[in-house]
Simulated scan of single mutants.
Amino acid sequence: MTCNPEAKPSSIQMAPSINTLFFFFFHLLLCLTPSLAVAAGRVPALIVFGDSTADPGNNNNIPTLFKSNFPPYGRDFPGGRPTGRFSNGRLASDFISEGLGLPLTVPAYLDPGYGIEDFAKGVSFASAGTGLDKITSDLSHVIPLWKEVEFFKEYQEKLRSYAGEAMAAHIVGEAVYIVSIGTNDFLVNYFSYVTGRAVEFTVDEFAGFLVSIAGDFLTEIYRLGARKITFFGLVPIGCLPLERTVNVIGGGGCNEKLNEAARSFNAKLQALIGQLNASLPRLKLSYTPVDGHVLDILNNPSAYGIENVEEGCCGTGKMELGYLCNPWSPFTCEDADKYAFWDAFHPTEKMYRLVAEATLRTLAEFI
C-alpha cells in the first residue's frame, strides 16, 4: 500500500461504513508517522555504546566512584528504582528503543538480572565516565571503549548460541546502533589539565585526535557486522550547570571556550561520517545533531515547558553529581520536568525524551 494522503479504499461509498472509516484513518496514521510504522518489526535490536548518557547501570558492577545506583537517581523511573542511570528516569536510548517498537528500556550488559534473551532485543555496553581517549577511562576507573567492543564480540558469541548463526547475523546486521561519547574526553581529561593532553594538543588537534579514534572504533564494529549506526554530536558542554558554576569570570554564563571545542569535534565527526559512508559498502552511518536540539531547548525553554536550564534539579543544582546528589541533598526540586538538567552534569528524563524524539526523526531516514 502506498502512502498517498488522497488515496481512498475502493469500497468507499457515499455513506462509508465504520470499517471504511477505520481503514481511512489507519491509513492516514501510517502516512503521518512513517518512521514508527516502518521501524516497528523491522529493527530487531538497539545496541548502544558510550558514556553516562547511555549507561543504564554497567558501572554498578565495576569498582568505580562513577555510580548513580542510589536515590534520588531513578526517582521517576518505573517503580522509582535507581538503576544506575544518571537521570531521574529513562535515558534517550530507552525512549528510542520504545519508539522503534522494542522494549521500553535498554538493559546494561553487566546487569546480572538480564540474560541473552533480553539482550537479543537491546543491550548497552556504555560506561559512565568513559571516553574515546583511553586516558579518560583510566582517570575514572571505568570501562574503556575498547572493552565495550570486546563485550560486543562476547555478546555475539552468546547470541549465536542462543539464536543460531543465521538469526544472530540478522540481528547484528539489522540492529540500530547508537554511539554517545566524547564529553568526558574534554571535561574530565583535556580541560582538567591533569593529563598533559592540553600540552600535547591544541583544542582543535585534540578534537581531531578523538575523531580519529572514533573512526577506528566505527570501522571495527562495522567489521563485526554493524551497519546502521548513528553517532550523537556533543551538546554545548560549556552550558552544563557545573561548567556555568565554575565560570565565575563569565558571570555564570555558558563557557564558550568549551562550546567551541564541542563544535570543533562535531564538525570533524561529520566529515568522518561522510568519508566512512563513501568507503565502507552498505554502511548507513548518520550524525545525530544533538547539539542543535539541545541548544534550541536551552535558548527557547518555554517552548518545551521547561523553566530552568541553568541549574540541575538535584540539590542546589550547581555542583551536585554522583554521590553529591543523594537523598540528603537539600533543595532538590519537586518536578524534574521543569528542568533541563537533573544533576549538574546530566539531563532530566524529559530532556532525554525530547532528544530521543528528534533522533527518531533522524533514524527514519535510513531504517
Rank of each mutant, 00 (worst) to 15 (best):
E320A: 03
D335Q: 05
L240S: 09
A278R: 12
T245H: 02
T332P: 07
G315C: 10
D337E: 15
W328M: 06
G322F: 07
E310D: 12
H346D: 07
P330Y: 06
A262Q: 06
T230Y: 08
R282N: 15
E349M: 11
E334L: 12
V294M: 15
L276T: 03
F232C: 10
N277G: 08
G317I: 01
G225A: 11
I237M: 10
D296C: 04
R223W: 04
L258R: 04
R223Y: 11
M319I: 11
I249H: 08
K228H: 12
K318Y: 09
I249T: 15
G315K: 03
C239Q: 13
A344I: 00
I273A: 02
N300P: 08
N308G: 09
T288Q: 03
F341C: 04
G305V: 03
P281E: 03
D343P: 01
N277W: 01
K257L: 14
K318N: 02
G317L: 02
P241H: 01
P236N: 02
D343K: 01
V248W: 08
S302E: 14
R227Q: 14
Y287A: 02
K284L: 11
H346E: 10
E220D: 10
N326P: 15
P301N: 02
L218F: 00
I249F: 14
N300Y: 00
L240K: 03
L224R: 05
P241D: 07
N300K: 05
V235I: 13
A271G: 11
I273K: 08
A278N: 08
R263N: 02
F331E: 14
T348E: 02
I273F: 10
G238R: 07
S286G: 01
V309G: 11
G274R: 14
A303K: 15
K228W: 14
E220V: 00
R282D: 15
G250M: 05
S286Y: 02
R263M: 06
N277H: 00
N299V: 00
N255L: 13
T288G: 14
I229E: 05
L242M: 06
R244S: 13
R244C: 13
D296Y: 04
R227Y: 05
E334Q: 12
G251A: 06
F231G: 10
S302L: 02
I237W: 09
Y323G: 10
D296N: 13
V309K: 11
T245A: 14
A271L: 04
N266S: 11
L285K: 09
N308I: 15
Q270A: 01
V309S: 14
A278K: 09
L272S: 12
D335P: 09
L276I: 02
C239D: 15
F231D: 01
I237G: 04
F232I: 04
A271V: 12
A271P: 00
G225V: 09
P347F: 10
W328N: 05
S264W: 02
L242D: 05
E220S: 08
E320P: 04
L218N: 10
E220Q: 08
F331P: 08
F232R: 10
A303V: 12
L276M: 01
Q270P: 14
C313S: 03
S329Y: 09
P347H: 00
I297W: 09
S286K: 06
G292T: 13
T316C: 04
K284G: 01
E349H: 15
K338T: 01
G274C: 14
